[in-house]
Simulated assay, not measured.
Amino acid sequence: MVKREGMENLLLRYYEGDTTEDETILVEEWLEASEENSRIARQVQTIGLAVDMAQISSRLDVKKALEDVHRKMERKKVNRYQVLFRGMQRAAAILFIPLVISWSILYWSRDGQEIQMMEVRTNPGMTTSVELPDGTEVVLNSSSLLRYPSQFADDKREVKLVGEAFFSVAKDEKKFIVGTLNKSKIVVHGTKFNIEAYKESKKVQTTLVSGKVSFSYVNNGGRNDVMMQPGQKVVYDIVQEKVVVEKANVDVETSWKDGYLIFRNTPFEEILKSLSKRYNVEFILKKASLKQSSFTATFTKQRLERILEHFRISSNIHFRFVEDGDVNAERQVIEVY
């Protein structure tokens, strides 16, 4: 039996095509040993495109790259997992942390010039960080998507976000614009702020840590702008097309990016939503009265079971992991009562 650390190293070499015949057999037997192993393998496959894309030429010859891969496949038989990785400059695969950062390149013409776009996605329950071409740092939360160009235009820096992210925007004369749901957008020059814009929530929430931003949103067919000050939070209701500006607890709103969960008199439903994002689980609240409860707590990097135990001991709240026999289910269901 290969130890965990040994399997990690073995898989790194396996996906780069550097394993011996015996090692290849060992890895493939592990992949076939369980559905969980196969699920992890499918996730790891997509990481093959995350090969220092930011350093690849903006004139990447995709056709030639594909031809090179096809030639290698014809010269030597390779298995279905290795095909995606051969011919790549470098591939980094972390097996036991099922994080997938998928990068894609899209091309279209604008004024006769070819434009390259990058796309980063995070798996449920995972976070990652990205540095944009201008030096802006972005931390992406669970189940989020960020799309941006490999080089910004001369007049503005613009990205698209679905999900949640924390931005530390590099100072520049060019405006930095984050477009998100329902044509809403945040316009900044140099600042730090958090945006939460998941499709299922039907809301866009922006918390400003420092600097100034303008929140622009659609209302009755027109466009309105709200200037924000540090420590403020804007909540945009997409359905009603209304905006509420309120004082924010910055530490609570942004703690996720540092691996913490901070709650300050936070409604229990909101706590469950945060835990759902962090641990990729689905909570079913069976006791309606719990919706009225609020809690204050700080969790660092505890396992979910430890956190749930905290609520059980302190507040007599019980949790039951639902087993439905579906090994392909993407999320664990937990009943709360």
Rank of each mutant, 00 (worst) to 15 (best):
E330Y: 08
S201H: 11
G112P: 01
L140T: 02
S143H: 08
M228R: 07
A54Y: 06
A50W: 13
E21S: 08
L208C: 03
G211R: 06
F152M: 07
T122H: 05
N316Q: 10
E74F: 05
W108T: 08
T24R: 15
N219S: 13
Q302S: 13
R75D: 12
A92K: 15
T24E: 13
I195N: 00
N37S: 12
T298D: 07
V130A: 03
M126K: 13
V100Q: 09
D52Q: 10
E36S: 15
Y279S: 07
D61V: 10
V243E: 08
R223L: 05
S255T: 10
K199P: 02
H310K: 12
I238K: 06
V62K: 09
E119A: 03
N9L: 06
N141Y: 04
Q43Y: 04
E323M: 11
L60T: 07
D258L: 13
F319D: 05
S314Y: 11
M118S: 08
S102H: 06
Y198R: 05
E28I: 07
Y81D: 04
D324C: 08
Q45Y: 13
V159M: 03
L26F: 12
Q43H: 10
I101H: 02
N280K: 15
K76G: 02
Y198C: 04
R121D: 02
I238D: 06
T266K: 15
A92L: 10
L304R: 04
L261G: 00
D18K: 12
E330R: 14
G222F: 05
L208W: 01
I115R: 02
F176C: 01
V27Y: 00
I271D: 00
E196S: 11
D172H: 10
L275I: 06
A153C: 01
W108D: 08
P230K: 06
R4G: 04
E5W: 10
D251N: 12
Y217I: 00
D326M: 14
M117S: 10
G259Q: 09
T207Y: 05
A297E: 09
E114R: 14
S143Q: 08
H70I: 12
G135K: 03
N220A: 15
P124N: 03
A153G: 09
K242N: 14
E323K: 15
N37E: 10
R303I: 03
H70L: 12
V235L: 11
V218F: 00
I262K: 15
F85S: 06
I334A: 07
I195T: 02
N37W: 07
V187C: 01
H310R: 09
S216K: 11
F96W: 15
S144K: 05
G163C: 04
T128K: 03
P133I: 03
